[in-house]
Write a protein that binds this DNA or RNA. Structure first.
Lengths: 225, 225
DNA sequence: TTTAATTTTGTAAAACTTTTAAATACAAAG
DNA sequence: CTTTGTATTTAAAAGTTTTACAAAATTAAA
């Protein structure tokens, strides 16, 4: 479970981080509100643990801003502010749970798991699309279009295309491709790469017969755009 | 907001009932576990407030049975049992929140609203009814029609169809399906997904023998429309 | 119990990947 | 300009993996 911990007290942050990490949680720490908001907005955490008294931006404000941005990541307030007014304010600001310091680790864990359990039925990932010339690749949906027409790629073809696009305008050796796309660490005289480059070229070549994937003799290939 | 209150102490039940009713909540009361389970199963509450020590069936057991029946109504435990063990047990049994007696009314309200907020978000994000080709799905009533003809889906089949529709036009891996529909976090060589996709295909395939659920070899499935 | 729902097992068929080998293209040397 | 050796492209065959589906086994519900 990917957890963001926003806590300004380095000592406290360290203890929580250690305690949760040891139990298999993947923790990222932000030591102030601004950093916390940035990390929460750009990454895709399963749960956010928020202190309220923070330098820069209070946890309460952070929560409100995140909700304003339509970010629905579950938020657990973990703070020493224990009055009913504080609790109600935190929950009404968009928080999902409110736990008081000092706390028991197993309770924190149980509450984190509870927040994470309610998985939504729809996959909540922002789009990751690249458009090159008349070629459109959606890395999340794994759909590829050329000239608005969907083309069917096999999984190996897709991975190869993804590797090219993510390393465009750069000569890539067959060896690199073999390592990253096929996971082969030593070349024993295979030419699968050549074969698959050929497949890809045929599939993504459009009416204008563009040469996106170019051969660099003696070096490898380059995806140029 | 429709709330079910399961509480055996008539006096306490009455106070909570009155306090919440006055603030616009629609409260139903069950005075024992068995009645509580029946009411929870047959009606459609937004939130359930559960005491733990109940005659007939403990709140903990009630919660477990409800979850076993795939009833996902948010549950808030409201009890005097305040040890960490109790809290963890309640949350792990499928509870969503745990509030100790004695409690402040405004905190109970805030926590109820928080639980209801998540539910609302989930449902209102999408249409209640989806029509794809000649297939009509009503997510509220859980009724599915093909060519104006009602088809009977089991609960697993329905959840799978719902997941497909909520993520249409996107390749979905078996792993993702297993996680979101079955709640399994690691694949130990099962192929239930394949089997259920086969069931669904048969049931929703209509006269025009449409191929809504397509296989993407090496990647998963896609619900295309 | 009986019935319905779910999961596991097994296998043929389909889809995909890799190898092979011949054809083609290219670069440097004569 | 032609030859020669090396690298690349291509198509087809061989091999492998993945998937579909039926049927049996297990589990849960009535």
């Amino acid at each position: 479970m990917k957890v963001l911990l926003v806590e300004d007290e380095p000592h406290v942050a360290s203890i929580i981080n250690k305690g949760l990490s040891e139990n298999g949680y993947n923790i990222s720490v932000a030591l102030d509100g601004i950093t916390g908001l940035e990390m929460a907005a750009s990454n895709n955490f399963d749960v956010i643990i928020l202190d309220i008294m923070l330098p820069g931006l209070s946890g309460m404000e952070l929560c409100k801003q995140l909700r304003n941005q339509k970010n629905n990541t579950p938020i657990l307030f973990l703070t020493a502010l224990g009055t009913t007014e504080n609790i109600v304010a935190g929950l009404n600001a968009g928080g999902d749970d409110y736990l008081l310091k000092p706390f028991k680790f197993i309770e924190l864990e149980a509450r984190l798991n509870t927040l994470n359990r309610r998985k939504q039925m729809h996959i909540n990932e922002e789009e990751d699309i690249q458009e090159i010339d008349t070629l459109r690749i959606n890395f999340k949906s794994k759909l590829v279009h050329v000239d608005e027409l969907e083309i069917a790629l096999t999984s190996t073809e897709f991975r190869l295309l993804e590797f090219f696009v993510r390393n465009k305008n750069r000569v890539i050796s067959r060896m690199e491709i073999l390592e990253k796309v096929w996971g082969i660490d030593f070349n024993m005289g295979t030419n699968v790469v050549d074969v698959y480059v050929n497949y890809l070229r045929k599939k993504i070549s459009n009416s204008k017969s563009n040469k996106l994937i170019q051969t660099v003799v003696g070096m490898g290939y380059i995806f140029k755009c």
